[in-house]
């Protein structure tokens, strides 16, 4: 008897009832009207919801045994949001084409951890491009790979891997090897302004980058801002810190609440 048949027997669901595709186990029924027996069978959508808080003890024991059998058969038992993300990653892995080219390019030439951070960042970029929330994904990258991972995520999202690092490697492997570490570890070619930064922070971060850039012959620094608050912050900074920023020729790109300021270094 399969675990599904055992589940049906446990909750008196007819064996020839419509197909069940999805069983979700919850703790809290939230006193839903249809949860008094500890379960709800959505026949139209092939779903069964189990509510542990209203489940009798003997049925809870039955669910425990079914869960153990389900795992024992080699299935993964996943939290529902984890399953959703895993499914999205499967789809992404099948359909990523241009991202696969980027990964194939960098796999042999960057450290394995950086490659993993890049791989995750390319997925994050795709999610971001659909204007979906990327906060948890970004936190996950930062938690696993620290500031370096955070820099890789920012640089990747802004296109630096394709538009700067790939051409750099193709033009000079030596220059790439010289600059890669400093670009990724210190994000020297780009400052990504976030909500916690003020004008002094921005100016200080640019100063730090200027010192490093001059040593390595880097000819530009970009300032990135996303969202109204950050865009306004950057524009105010450029205006109010004219003594500092007035020194640099600059190009400003602004659209859809995104700003990129290019400072050209002499």
């Amino acid at each position: 008897m399969s675990f599904l048949d055992k589940l049906k027997a446990l909750f008196n669901i007819e064996l020839n009832a419509p197909l069940i595709n999805y069983v979700n186990i919850r703790e809290n029924s939230n006193n839903q009207q249809n949860s008094k027996d500890g379960f709800y069978h959505d026949k139209d959508n092939g779903k069964v919801e189990l509510y542990l808080d209203t489940l009798p003890t003997d049925k809870k024991q039955g669910v425990k045994e079914i869960v153990k059998e389900y795992i024992g058969e080699g299935n993964k038992l996943l939290e529902e949001n984890t399953l959703k993300l895993l499914y999205k990653l499967h789809v992404y892995n099948k359909e990523k084409k241009e991202d696969a080219q980027v990964l194939n390019f960098f796999k042999p030439i960057i450290p394995p951890n950086d490659f993993e951070a890049l791989e995750a960042s390319l997925y994050l970029r795709q999610v971001f491009s659909r204007r979906e929330d990327v906060n948890k994904l970004k936190r996950d990258i930062r938690k696993r790979f620290g500031d370096r991972g955070n820099n890789i995520a920012n640089l990747c999202t802004a296109g630096y891997f394709e538009q700067f690092l790939m051409p750099l490697y193709n033009s000079s492997k030596e220059k790439f090897n010289e600059l890669y570490e400093i670009i990724v570890s210190k994000s020297v070619v780009a400052l990504f302004v976030h909500s916690l930064m003020n004008q002094d922070d921005i100016t200080r971060e640019i100063s730090n980058r200027l010192q490093i850039s001059s040593k390595y012959g880097i000819k530009f620094i970009h300032i990135h801002g996303i969202g109204t608050a950050n865009v306004d912050k950057i524009k105010e900074c450029l205006e109010e810190q004219k003594n500092f920023f007035g020194f640099f020729p600059k190009e400003i790109y602004e659209k859809d609440n995104i700003i990129i300021v290019e400072l050209l270094l002499k």
Binding site: L4, L19, I20, I25, Y70
Partner: peptide, 8 residues
């Protein structure tokens, strides 16, 4: 019939 089991 093949179902997926998840938890909240």
């Amino acid at each position: 019939e093949k179902a997926v089991i998840t938890f909240s």
